[in-house]
């Protein structure tokens, strides 16, 4: 079937099977391999994408569910002018190790910041608790999100 949605700011019409997993659509069909897959069953958060600003797990979503939606993947976060300041904060705070959970972590954090601009450390920890990381122990990720949120005015200048 034909599916129309907005992907990383661009309107798109694609022909695909309605039951195609969104993670396969992104990675295999559209070449957006920044969306990772790790468990295939909604347990780890590696495949997180933003659908209308909400963090969603693309490994348990089907293509038809994207109809008319606005989708953001990690590739759509940084613009022509460079990295998103949250990505800068991840670098500055050493929040990236193997990097496999990183795209999902960034997107889940952005969804949190969208609904709660100044979260506490506890709120950040709760928000990313569906995103597993095996390298960092999460602390530096929390540091990055917290610092970004606190210094947002500086970033947004």
């Amino acid at each position: 079937m034909k599916i129309r949605f907005c992907l990383n700011g661009k309107n798109l019409e694609i022909e695909t099977r309605p039951d195609r997993r969104v993670v396969d659509l992104m990675r295999e069909d559209l070449g957006l391999t920044g969306t990772k897959e790790s468990c295939g069953s909604g347990e780890c958060g590696s495949c997180t994408i933003l659908v209308d600003g909400q963090a969603r797990l693309s490994c348990i979503m089907l293509a038809a569910q994207l109809e008319g939606r606005s989708v953001t993947t990690i590739e759509g976060i940084s613009g022509e002018e460079g990295l998103h300041p949250l990505q800068e904060a991840f670098i500055a705070h050493g929040a990236v190790q193997c990097g496999y959970c990183t795209p999902g972590m960034v997107l889940t954090s952005l969804a949190l910041l969208g609904r709660k601009p100044c979260p506490t450390r506890k709120e950040i920890r709760e928000a990313i608790s569906g995103n597993l990381c095996r390298c960092t122990g999460y602390q530096k990720i929390v540091d990055a999100v917290k610092t970004f949120a606190s210094e947002r005015k500086v970033y947004q200048r």
Partner: peptide
């Protein structure tokens, strides 16, 4: 001195190609 990791940029933007990313 703490220096930012060389690999962080590509991993953060989804550009890094892991062994599982080949199609």
């Amino acid at each position: 001195r703490a220096a930012p990791r060389f690999d962080a940029y590509a991993k953060l933007t989804g550009k890094e190609k892991y062994a599982s990313d080949f199609y």
